[in-house]
Amino acid sequence: MSSYQEFAHIYDELMNDIPYDAYVELLDLASAGISGKKVLDIGCGTGLLSAMLAKKGAQVTAIDLSADMLEVAAKRAKSLGLSIDFKDQPMQQLSVDGTYEVAVISIDSLNYVLDRQDVEETFRRVYNALERNGVLLFDVHSLFKMDEIFLEGPFVFDNQRITYIWQTEPGEEEHSIYSELAFFVSQEDGSYKRFDEIHTQRSFAVTDYVDMLDQAGFQIERIFADWEDEPPEEESERIFFQVRK
């Protein structure tokens, strides 16, 4: 995976269709009110969700493995007058002081952890970072999306300022994809600047996630799909897990 040096500066514009407010509502409901709670935002990216949670009164610690993403996130927090503690670390190496009441891994960030042992280690570390009765909410791509929808590419995006061509193929691991993206970003002089990204993601069956969560000590509260309070179906695309310590 790339370092996101260029990608970090256009990320928010590309994620306009992500209902971040729905994450806030889900976390608010799961924690009986997010205000005043210590929240761990894992794989925080440019910190948009972190900022929304902080605005709601949460005490947020946000981690990401990309220093470029964290730089954008820190600038956002500063511009909004928000106090958010940002840490540069992979989620499978999560190391934080104290314990938290809430943890979230949003926008399929967990799918970038390719090795099953690393996913298991992520769950163990999050479990240890949570207080008793603490809640973890995360989402992942379904196997249907990984094995079928993503392989229907290439995909093309153009919003007049940013254009990308996204080529996908099966990854080396089962239920994984290898993506090559070519971005073209318009400049003030009318030219376009090109940069390239390589991303690899992997998902696991719902039953595999349940087994890994169980091994870490979590209790499953609910599993639902596609932002609806309904169980996953064969063609669901995004699977959510709400679990508790």
Rank of each mutant, 00 (worst) to 15 (best):
Q187R: 14
R132E: 14
V102A: 04
Q117P: 08
A30M: 07
Y20I: 07
Y209F: 15
Q93C: 10
I177Q: 09
A54C: 12
Y100H: 06
S236Y: 07
L137M: 07
G43A: 06
F157I: 02
A54T: 10
L80H: 07
E25A: 09
D214E: 11
T122P: 08
D97T: 01
G98L: 01
S66H: 14
P19E: 13
E235P: 11
R76S: 02
D17A: 07
I198A: 05
L53H: 05
I18K: 09
F218M: 05
K87Q: 15
I107F: 14
I84S: 01
L70G: 00
A54Y: 08
F86I: 02
T163F: 12
I105Y: 08
Q93W: 11
K87V: 15
L70T: 00
F150C: 10
D97Q: 09
G43H: 09
G57S: 02
G98C: 03
N128P: 08
E13C: 08
K87H: 15
A73Y: 12
T168Y: 09
D208F: 11
E13P: 12
I162K: 01
E234Q: 10
A129Q: 12
T46Q: 02
F204H: 06
E101R: 04
I105R: 09
P19R: 08
F240M: 09
I84C: 00
D64H: 06
L49Y: 11
L82D: 02
T207D: 14
D139Q: 10
M91I: 04
T168V: 12
A67L: 05
E152H: 14
A73P: 13
